[in-house]
């Protein structure tokens, strides 16, 4: 996993509530056995017409936002299906961080496992950032995970909260399986004493 320390990038505003993972990566693009190839289909229902041509007015198709790496969205981002393909698609498209008032639980974990930083901020602030991105593109933010702050070039500077263990993993790009396997002995000990009523099937 790529570590996340500091990032400066362009902000794209997509201020809808309840953006579900079916929108982030529609099901027809889940038919793959690879972890890559999803970026091209990110938000494909919104980015493309039925015939495959570009929806020119969709934010990510507009000149200023094509190389955006920070997405600003409405509350409950990433709700619905557990598909990690949503996090893969966002990362592959170039997003390193998302700013929203809240996130769905499974998406939060999936993002963390892919080095995608989720920043939670109060709704009015999210709205303000989205407005800046909308009216003054390219609007750039600098995100510093070490100091837990975001800043723009016009004096905005806000701190954000992130759970210590998530921050630690992101800063160092740590593989969770490797971390868990350090506790192999604890798992084995637990296994020796556990109860199960699972019968061998007939």
């Amino acid at each position: 996993m790529e570590p996340f320390r500091q990032h400066r990038g362009t902000v794209a505003p997509l201020l809808r509530e309840n953006i579900d993972t079916d929108q982030i990566i529609p099901k027809q693009h889940l038919k793959s056995i690879e972890r890559t190839g999803f970026g091209a289909h990110l938000f494909s229902g919104w980015r493309f017409h039925g015939d495959g041509t570009l929806q020119r007015d969709f934010v990510l198709n507009q000149e200023h936002y094509r190389s955006a790496s920070i997405l600003v969205a409405g509350r409950n981002f990433g709700c619905g299906s557990s598909r990690e393909h949503a996090a893969w698609a966002l990362s592959e498209f170039g997003f390193r961080a998302i700013i929203a008032p809240s996130y769905a639980d499974i998406f939060r974990t999936n993002a963390g496992n892919n080095g995608l930083l989720l920043i939670e901020m109060e709704e009015p602030l999210v709205r303000r950032i989205a407005e800046q991105a909308q009216t003054k593109p390219p609007y750039k933010l600098t995100i510093d995970l070490e100091t837990q702050t975001i800043a723009d070039d016009c004096g905005l500077s806000e701190s954000f909260a992130v759970e210590a263990f998530r921050r630690h993993r992101l800063l160092h790009g740590l593989d969770e399986i490797g971390m868990t396997l350090l506790h192999e002995a604890d798992i084995s000990r637990f296994e020796e004493c556990r109860h199960t009523f699972l019968q061998r099937g007939t």
């Binding site: 557990s82 974990t109 496992n113 892919n114 399986i177």
Partner: peptide, 9 residues
């Protein structure tokens, strides 16, 4: 429900 990285985990 869990994501694919967690399935691997």
């Amino acid at each position: 429900g869990i994501g694919t990285s967690e399935v691997e985990h």
